[in-house]
Structure formats: C-alpha cells, structure tokens
Design a protein around this nucleic acid. Structure first.
Lengths: 335, 335
DNA sequence: TCGACCGAGTGAATCGTTCCAACTAGTGAG
DNA sequence: CTCACTAGTTGGAACGATTCACTCGGTCGA
C-alpha cells in the first residue's frame, strides 16, 4: 500500500528526484557514487516505478499489442511466439489479445490498445477493421497486418500466398484421383478461407470433371469441423466427396475424428487435407497432409516490419509474402 | 498525431473538461442534453481517452496480468481462455504473458505487471517467485496461484490433485500388467512434475516388483519428449520400461512419435500415458490415455478467486482443489 | 416569502515521473 | 587572475484525466 516513489528514494539517497530519474534512465549523466547511493536506496525501499506516470510524461507506451484470430490454434501461438521473441530483443513487451474470430472482441482490444497508446499493433483481422486501423495510425500507432494483404497501400503486411496453397492441395488431390472436392472452413468472410478456396477452384477448373463444393463451418475449430463432416456423412453414400480439404488443421482434425468414428476409410474412401501444418497434424491417428506456413518466421518478420514502421512512420509500406509448401502424408496417399 | 484531449472535446461541446469526464465516467451526473453534446463532440474529434493519465490519477489499473508456463500448450490456452471469459464479464482486460518455463522471463513479466500496477496477477509459477509475489501484494496487487498450492497461507490458489493424478495413472498401468514404469517430464523442479511422480511412486510401492524411474526431459514440450525417449530406446531391449508415463501430453506426443518411428508397438511393447488430456491426445496416431483436468473451469475459478481478493484484500485465502479423472485409451489397453 | 435543498456544472488541485533550463564548483587555457 | 567550459545536480513545469469542494439557478415545503 505504502508505495515508495521517486521522492522517497531521493530523500533516502540524499539527492533530488531529478537525479533519481537520471540514474534510472540516463545513468551516464550521473556520477558513479550517486548512482550507487540511488541504487541502494531503491533496493532498500523496494521501489518500482509507476509506468502510468512514466508513459503520461513520455507520451507513448513502448509496448506492442497483438490480436490473433484464435489463441487456441497452435499456428497462431507460433506466430505470436516469433513476434514476441523479436520484440523482446527490441525491449518491447507484447500484449496478446485473442479475438476468437469475433469482431466485437477484436474492436474491444483495438480500443484498449488505442487507449494505452501502444507503439504498434500486429493484427490478424476478422472483420472490417480498416477504419479503426486508420484511426490508430492517425493517433501515431503503427500497424502491421498479418495473414492478409489488405489496405495494401496503407499498412505493411506479412502473408502467405493462400491461393497458391489452395492450388497445391487441389493439384495433389486431383493427382491422387479425386474429382469431387469439398472445401470446409469458415466463416466464408475470412480472407484466408476465400483465397484458399479460390486457389482450389482455379486448379479444379483446369481438369475435366473436377468440381469444388464449399461448406461453411462457421468457425475454424475442431468442433465446427466435426459438425460439418457429420452433416456431410448424412448424405447418400454416392454424394460423398472423394476428398475433403479443410482450410485449417483444427478443422481437419475434427473431420478426421468423425470419419474415424463412422468407419470411413481415409484416404481409401475419402481423402483429407488440412492447412497450417501444425505439429499435431503429423501425429494424428492418420497423419494429415497439410500446407506448411513458416509461422514463427512470419511473426518475426511482422515484428520487424513494425519496428521499421515505428522508427519511420512516413516510410513506404512493405509486404512480405511467404510461399506455402505442401506436406504430403497418409491422409491423401495410400502407401 | 494531433490527438484530441478532454479539453478539446469540452471546448467543442461548450462545457468544461470536468463535465466531459463526468459524462464519460458518471453519466448519471450529467443532463441528457449535455451528454448528447459531449458524445457528438467525442465522435467528431475521434477522441480516445489516455489510459496512462487516467490510471495515474486513479492510482490503479483495472487490468489483470496472467503468466502461463507455456503458451503453446493447449492446456494453458484453455485455462487462459476460462480466465479471460470471467474477467471480461468483470470488465477487466487480461494481459497474457508467457514464461516459457524460464525464470528470467517470468520475472520480467512480474516486473512489468508491477510497474503497470495491475489490479491482480494470475500465475502458474516456474521458479521461486514467492518473494516477488509478496512484493506485489505489498504494492496492493492481489495474486492467485494456478496449478500449485504454494505459499498456502498467503495466496489463494487453484490446483488439481497431482498426486492423485499420478496414482491413477500408476494404478491403471499396473493393472494392465506393467511393472517397470518410466516417468518422463521436467524440469524436476516443477511442482507438478514432482507431485505426479510422487503419486506414481506411492502407488508402485504397494505392488511387489513395481518400480518407478524418473527421466528429466528438461522441458515439457514435444521436442524434449522425443529426445528423452530416443535415449531410452538406445538401451538394451531388456532394460526398456514396460510403460512410459509422460507428465504432460505434449511430451507424450513426442514420445509417441519416436516409438512409432522406431517401430515399437504401443501398447504391446511399451504402454504410454500422458497428462492434461488436451484435445490432440485423443486424436493421436494411437489415442493416448491421459489425465483430464478441468482446464477452462480452473481458469474461471482462478479469476473468481482473484475477484474476491481484489475486492477484499484482507479476506482469508482460499484454495480450490479439483480432482483429476483418468481417460483410458488405446495407448495403454490393447482392445 | 424564506430558507433548505437539489441537480447540473465548474475551477483548481492532484496523481508520479521526466525533462528543461539553470546553477554550482571545479578545471584548464590564455 | 579571468573567462570559457564541463560534469553533476537541481527546482519546477509539464503530461492529461479525474475529483473535490464549490457555485448557481431553480423548486418545494412550511
């Protein structure tokens, strides 16, 4: 309760508050003797500086806020981890927020970060947040967009070529003999989902008889994958697709659970592919073919672009686009 | 850059700054007419209040900080999710920090939260943080410990009976015919690891010939699990354990990968059990027997205890202990 | 009619830190 | 001996929102 302040430290050390501040923030301006005295006083009183006062005076907060689509998705924890590492090197704490694919949550966190006057924001957007991001920029907060090249001329971004990812999967599935492909994922409003679907469609269009059907799961988690595939299996047997492409691995794992429970052979009766190549895809009941994205590297690069934007807000925006890689496993290729 | 302040809003609305503040924080003190004028002015200027100034004046930060052992572990993301939900209902933002089982990181976050004067801290501790937690408490920050009943008379806590969890696993393994049991996990300094091991040992002591061996993996992730089991398999075949009990599911999944690659039959040659019952344990190549903990519920309860501690710092500390439940799957029981 | 009372609004002080300009004492060049 | 200069230190003014004690009309009960 009785929190020590600079003036208490100053009194104990026999110097002025200004000197204590200098000792803390510009040690070279202070003689070795006083520095030692001040440090001893800080130690004795257990002084911890008040960040609010510090920020108020400084006018800005060194921290960076990050908003991910789904904190339970290993892909995003990897991205966050990459970002956190790089930011830690820059001495910037990372505040992590989870939008859980809900626009309302997303806006809540954006407002929070705005009120906190954070130096920058990393965001994988759900809804249409461009207006809010512009506001942030007006307020002097730099923004880097992850996983989506939106507002391309306004904000730097880090993304993966999702169309190509979709193409790679479709190419492989068709090569393995599949013609009727069901793409499952959602909500359909998510850029990632649309792009992966689009890439799939484009590849299918080049092969006679190849068709693509999209089933919106509503969300990108295991439960949604289960429900959707459950409904799919209720169709007459001859209307089943030959392959299911889940737009992320959580959905794919949910799909696999249902297929296994229903006794459907994978890949014999239905092939299954996922996206993100999270660690658990490879160690699933039947290892799942998936599209690898360099998640940690993406986080690190996002943090790096943010660093540049913070240092020079007027600099040109940059877009880093990573290339996806197909990891073929049992779920699509009988051995 | 040109950030609007209360006084700008006040000027535009034709009232005093004090009134704007009242309109924002105590709307009932202000007439409907002025409230409307103020809101219009806020809208027009895009005013966002400065949290630092607000906190400085208020003397405290409504937010709550949380430090988890491993943000990549679904168990912890579930706990965090439960806590976040409950805190959101209380109007408190959650700042999430990841100690990644490193004491240094842990202390960094604790210092950050202390400087921010957060209202409370939820922590799953790695190192010996009791002194630092006492400091926080002195500074008026309430603390609730997760997953460990330490400093039992000083801080409220939420935990699971880890000894019993260990016992349950050992009981089942012995029942299935195993005698030589290897417990893998680490670092050994982690309370959870020690307790689970202890429970295992206690159960083994009651059966003739049952032995328990502990192998420290150094960390609780998949890679560490792989390495440790790799080394284990290098022993002469007749020195292999009959069962491996991994102290969390990530380690178990790593173990399973190595066993599969080496062509070791599970559970035929070696049985395998994990802990936490994360979703991926059930959908692994060979579904893994695991100990379920009510993760989301634990997070929610931790947040609730914290709420109580914040409201009445002098109140008696409380400990909620949940009971673990064994989920038997293929990895320990041939069908 | 008078005073008590009430709702609405305000001026000024305040939170704890940092920064700027100013000051002091000591040093060394001319 | 004087003056310019430096290293070290300091008083006091910010930063932006909130709050407290207070004012000002107006209403109501006696």
């Amino acid at each position: 309760m009785a929190m020590a302040q600079v003036r208490d430290v100053a009194a104990l050390a026999g110097v002025s508050p200004a000197t204590v501040s200098n000792a803390l923030n510009h040690p070279h301006r202070v003689s070795a003797r006083t520095l030692a005295k001040v440090q001893a006083a800080i130690e004795e009183l257990g002084y911890v500086r008040n960040d609010a006062a510090r920020q108020l005076r400084a006018g800005s907060n060194p921290a960076v806020g990050m908003i991910v689509l789904d904190a339970a998705n290993p892909y995003f924890t990897d991205v966050a981890h990459g970002a956190e590492q790089h930011l830690a090197e820059l001495g910037r704490p990372l505040l992590l927020g989870n939008s859980a694919q809900r626009e309302e949550q997303e806006l809540t966190y954006l407002r929070l970060f705005d009120e906190q006057r954070v130096a920058g924001v990393l965001i994988a957007p759900v809804g249409d947040v461009l207006p809010k991001l512009r506001t942030l920029k007006d307020h002097g907060t730099s923004v880097v967009i992850i996983d989506r090249k939106a507002g391309a001329d306004e904000f730097s971004s880090v993304s993966v070529n999702d169309e190509q990812g979709g193409w790679l999967v479709a190419d492989h599935l068709i090569d393995q003999g599949a013609r009727r492909i069901a793409v499952i994922g959602g909500p359909g409003s998510l850029r990632q989902v649309r792009h992966r679907l689009h890439g799939t469609q484009q590849r299918a269009d080049r092969t006679d008889g190849a068709t693509v059907e999209f089933l919106d799961t509503g969300a990108m988690d295991t439960a949604s994958g289960r429900e959707t595939v459950q409904r799919l299996l209720e169709r007459p047997r001859d209307e089943w697709p030959e392959a299911i492409f889940a737009t992320n691995d959580l959905v794919a794992l949910g799909a696999l659970q249902v297929l296994a429970r229903a006794g459907v052979e994978v890949p014999g009766e239905i092939m299954l592919a996922g996206y993100d190549d999270i660690e658990f895809a490879a160690s699933a009941t039947i290892p799942i073919t998936s599209v690898r994205q360099p998640s940690e590297e993406m986080g690190r690069q996002a943090a790096e672009l943010l660093r540049q934007a913070i240092e020079d807000p007027a600099a040109a925006v940059q877009h880093t686009v990573f290339q996806p890689e197909l990891m073929v496993r049992e779920s699509t290729s009988a051995h």
